[in-house]
Design a binder for these strands. Sequence first.
RNA 1: GGCCCUGUAGCUCAACGGCAGAGCAGUUGACUCUUAAUCAAUUGGUUAGAGGUUCGAAUCCUCUCAGGGUCACCA
Length: 503
Amino acid sequence: MSWQPNPLEEQRLDKLARLREIGIDPYPLRVERTHTTHEAIAAFEATTEGEPVKVIVCGRLLSVRDMGKTIFAHIGDESGRLQLFLRRDDIGDESHTTFKKLIDLGDFIQAGGEMFRTKLGEVSLHVREWRLLSKAISPLPVAKEQEVDGKIVRYSAFTDVEERYRQRYADLAANPEVRDIFRKRAHLVSALRRFMDDHDFLEVETPILQPLYGGAAAKPFTTYHNQLKQELFLRISFELYLKRLLVGGYERVYEIGRDFRNEGVSFKHNPEFTQLEFYAAYWDFHDVMDFTERMVAYAAEAVLGTTDVVFNGKMLQLGQPWLRITMRDAIKHFAEIDYMDYPDQASLAAAVRKIGGEAPPGAPWGKLIDGLLGDFVEPHLIQPTIIMNYPRDISPLAKAVPGDPLHVERFEFFIGGMEMGNAFTELNDPIDQRERFESLQEMFGKDDEERNPIDEDYLRAMRYGMPPNGGFGMGIDRLAMLLTDSRTLREVLLFPHLREREE
RNA sequence: GGCCCUGUAGCUCAACGGCAGAGCAGUUGACUCUUAAUCAAUUGGUUAGAGGUUCGAAUCCUCUCAGGGUCACCA
């Protein structure tokens, strides 16, 4: 349904008309701005008292305290907020009345004058002239704030989770700490990129629309190209394309981008999510472990200035050497079961059920083990922990542990009780790779969407020779959760997907 | 998808079978150093939607919609 103005909006539409009647363009083209609010305050404080500091600032009107012939107001811009001091004697009758009658909270205005300090000590702008820059028709949720013992207490803040996500623009406008989350996220991404670049990795972009999907076990989104008359998939990982580039001669490549998985949504799952993957020739998974520790510590330091991060009430020490433990030992410790005592699917399934774990019928041996990890181990992995040596049957792209046919050189790392990333010593034997793909075909049913089609082109690339390499993938959204102490993924996604609603 | 919880004014919330209310925002008025400004007056509602029970429903029941939590799912 199209927009029907509510009574408050009707009032503002009326003000809009009255502004035009008195010759004021409520949406002018040009703006004069000499300072941000932060710069204006800094300029004043850098000057000896008495020396005039003339500024023109712009921003959204956040609060108004009308004292009659004097008006105090605050405007906010991205740099901060600034109090305006408007007197009728300074700006004139007409301008004074216009401000009182036709200007609302949420409007953008421009104000010029000299900086000064009020009797109560707040650095403010003594306004000589002001101008409307953009009229707000819909009232923005306005919160009132009070400082109590140094802490900001907010009244009537905009907190409705659903509306905050559906109208993220209003959320951002009303809640400065939400703006801060996404500023941190941006810093995180640029820090990761800088770290990769500084270590001689080449940033590349590989197809999002792919004729085949692979590199992970996940259900894909499908789409269709009309002119090519071809079904296409949105990528579920970057892996197979990035490793083709190692065949081509690049030794270190990475990509930061979006993956799409047509699966359930939860506090740590979203249908599209941002991933960092890299592949480094001549590295094995031990090299990747070392690099991962340094990368995460670097990112935390860059974003927060520290590697000690508070998440969910617990202090995470990202800067310490991380605990490294094999999957078998971790499960022995937390689930008190040695899965090597149950070398086949049936006996392991029985053992898992006996200790109260999940053992879906038909789940492969390795998947049962991964289930044990998820149920019994993962929730305990609050401090950064590397779990290494994964079952071979659920890891088709990793090289076997020497002398151990059941495990591969693969690790996942966990922080704050969440899986953050996945890495391995990459399989580069094309014959072995084909066998792995083929056994996967048998393992997953024909109708199972997680069954990856065999990527013949990838095998062809590998037959030309692929250098030994270590690969890595990490969920950036989850890392952003950690660094912003957010309890759900949606808090770190600007526009999380919500079910469509009839308006 | 199962189970549990939630949906009331622009925002934040009360009322829990008996007249739909408060604070903020808005409107009108007073006030030339206020900052949750203050003071006085005042407007604003399809109680998410549809149906049912009842003399009477925001409140109880059923269904639908949306959101949250949790479980399932998720290398």
